[in-house]
Write a protein that binds this DNA or RNA. Structure first.
Length: 611
RNA sequence: GGACCCGUAGCUUAAUUGGAUAGAGCACCUGACUACGGAUCAGGAGGUUGGGGGUUCGAGUCCCUCCGGGUUCACCA
């Protein structure tokens, strides 16, 4: 089975140095101590910021060969390496760590190559061939999208772009849960008390309208349950026998029978919801290559289960229900068909996966789904494997943590659910206030200003969510999310806008940005620091893809922006003493801008020309 | 109860997958070129990485244990 990411060292720009160094260390160990080392025994890492150097060789593992102190071993190794590798300019041994520095010329040449290549180093990677299906969003159609969906959408969209940048063919799919009891609840409530209200008649967004009736259903239903309990009925029975739920279930039954009236109502209300969702997706800037509907897939899986039954992989109980026994794998038994022969959720997902494979013959299938379904996906994979589908191994559950509020979890009952549309609008409003205060966009075209404010508001929101490790639960603090200073999206956007401003200024003084760095210029330390980070872009994207973790890239872009702002503060670009320096710094700045733009694109965040 | 996940400064978080003195941002305090954009930059203060034990030259990271929090184990989806 195709494995998209092997864990061998890949040739990365700026990291080819690591490869050369590894070989050189092997040679040095042979020459100095007669030791034959395997590649895995040599640990090379980037030198920590507080020390001088670019790459660090950890010498502790070598002591058993050298039989000398860490200091002496490092010293001997350092002397040998700098003597044999031209691009090394110096070394320093600190407590068992050998820090090596590359010459400024090396860095400058590397930057030149990156600029010439036009792909920011991404083209130097082994391309990640293969087809990847990414399923994300997957909303129910009875309620508008909320904060949790936003995290899901941003993750799915960003990881799609990252994998694409690494060379994969990506298919973004959305599986819309458009049928079931929850939709019937909205339908029933609308039928009973909607008085024909439509999005057009009320001016409400379709998904919100349908959501309101869902809430109404739940309220009325709860009243009925309370009433029955007061009459002495047990809670569980009351919940099952309340007239409203009975009616909703009857509606579901008629839906499944294909009752025309029910189907028509269903189609109409779902259509309202889709129009609403589309608007939210558009505002968020995410899209899909294909949309699946559960109403078209929910019957899948049954034949697959029956097949498994025939082969003796699954078993039938006396009551007729069908089960998978997973006790060998440390799990329980899992129901796949009810005693009346109908499917459950798992059955459906088994079938959907199989159909996906037939549709796309993917090399990998990523499900962006919350971590409350970890168990579900573990079982899904296991059963598919038992059924003999070897592609089961290429299913990957990109499991992300819950989004909580400072007060705790979002609860629809308590009305603390953060609505996606409200949130987006709020962020743009904050950007507007902020911009007005700073007065930077005065005098520009109103439409352009609005576009920029949208970029900033959304940039803040998206970055705030994407910068944290997907696996972790995160706290969404509305107050902090609208902060535009520090480790935020607008900080990175600002850095980009600032660079564009310098370029414009350069144009005003009659300068154009050169295609190549001026030959003889030797960068200073701050410039070298910046180049070093720029050189790490491709490796960072690769890591983000390998780990399915856009946060890696987000934090890289912050780091890069911080470094650039320091450089900017310390050194004048257009006021530099000579033309070579001006052109060097100008092109360095422009290239930084390109990397920021490219990286932000991979996160699904736009960058403004000014802000 | 079984399985899985999480716990890092007041708050939000990072740590190159076992490496150096645990790094940032917010908030708080102090400063910055008569400005190529101050939505910036520099400095200060803030940590027993939930507690305890173990493995290792070396542990936030691996193992055990305890404490605290979460998710899940439905003839629901």
């Amino acid at each position: 089975m195709a494995c998209l990411f092997d864990h061998q060292k890949q040739l990365l720009p700026g990291m080819e140095a690591e490869k050369i160094l590894t070989a050189a260390v092997q040679e040095a160990m042979r020459a100095l101590y007669g030791a034959e080392l395997k590649e895995e025994e040599i640990l090379i890492q980037q030198t920590r910021r507080e020390f001088a150097g670019d790459l660090t060789v950890v010498v502790f593992p070598f002591l058993r060969y050298s039989r000398k102190s860490p200091a002496d071993t490092g010293e001997e190794l350092g002397r040998y390496l700098t003597g044999h590798i031209g691009m090394l300019s110096r070394y320093e041994v600190i407590k068992g760590f050998l820090n090596l520095s590359f010459s400024m010329e090396y860095w400058s040449e590397l930057l030149n190559r990156l600029i010439r290549s036009g792909h920011h180093g991404l083209g130097d990677l082994d391309p990640l061939n293969g087809k990847v299906v990414v399923e994300y969003s997957s909303p129910n159609t009875n309620k508008p999208l909320h904060l949790g969906h936003i995290r899901n959408n941003l993750l799915g969209f960003s990881i799609s772009r990252i994998l694409e940048a690494l060379g994969s063919e990506v298919v973004k799919v959305n599986l819309v849960n458009d049928r079931g009891i929850h939709i019937c609840k909205s339908m029933l409530a609308w039928k009973k008390s909607g008085k024909g209200e439509t999005p057009a008649s009320s001016g409400k967004k379709g998904d919100h309208l349908v959501g309101d009736y869902y809430v109404l259903f739940e309220q009325e239903y709860r009243k009925q349950v309370e009433e029955l309990k007061k009459q002495g009925m047990a809670e569980e029975e009351a919940r099952r026998r309340a007239p409203l739920i009975v009616e909703a279930q009857d509606m579901l039954r008629r839906w499944e029978e294909g009752n025309e009236e029910v189907r028509e109502l269903w189609a109409m209300m779902n259509e309202w919801v889709y129009e609403g969702f589309d608007e939210t997706y558009r505002a968020l800037g995410v899209d899909f290559d294909r949309i699946y509907y559960e109403s078209e897939t929910y019957r899948l899986g049954k034949s697959l289960v029956l097949e498994g039954l025939e082969k003796g992989i699954l078993h039938r109980r006396a009551d007729g229900s069908v089960w998978a026994d997973l006790s060998e794998d440390g799990l329980d038994e899992k129901l796949l068909l009810r005693s009346d022969g109908t499917s459950v959720y798992m059955t459906q997902d088994l079938g959907t996966a199989q159909q996906r494979y037939e549709d796309y013959r993917f090399d990998r299938h990523i499900y962006v789904v919350g971590n409350e379904q970890n168990y579900h996906f573990q079982v899904l994979k296991l059963i598919l494997k038992k059924l003999g589908y070897d592609w089961a191994d290429s299913l990957y559950h990109l499991s992300y943590g819950m989004v909580e509020l400072p007060e705790g979890k979002m609860k629809s009952r308590e009305g603390t659910v953060v609505d996606a549309d409200d949130l987006i609008a709020g962020m743009v409003d904050t950007a507007r206030e902020m911009s007005k205060e700073l007065g930077k966009l005065e005098g520009f075209d109103p439409a352009e200003i609005e576009e920029i404010l949208r970029m900033i508001g959304l940039g803040a929101l998206k970055y705030f969510i994407l910068k944290v490790d997907p696996k972790k639960n995160m706290t969404f603090n509305p107050r902090e999310s609208v902060d535009f200073n520090g480790n935020t999206g607008p900080f990175i956007q600002y850095t980009y806008a600032r660079i564009q401003s310098v370029v414009r200024k350069a144009g005003e003084t009659g300068r154009t940005v050169a295609a190549e760095l001026p030959g003889g210029y030797v960068p200073c330390e701050k410039e070298r620091d910046l180049i070093r980070i720029l050189a790490g872009f491709a490796a960072t994207v690769h890591e983000a893809g390998r780990e399915y973790n856009p946060a890696v890239l987000a934090n890289y872009l912050y780091e890069l922006s911080r470094e650039y702002n320091q450089f900017y503060h310390d050194h004048s670009i257009l006021g530099a003493p000579d033309e070579d320096t001006i052109h060097y710094r100008l092109l360095l700045s422009v290239y930084t801008g390109r990397v920021i733009a490219r990286g932000m694109y991979l996160l699904g965040i736009d960058v403004p020309p000014r802000m």
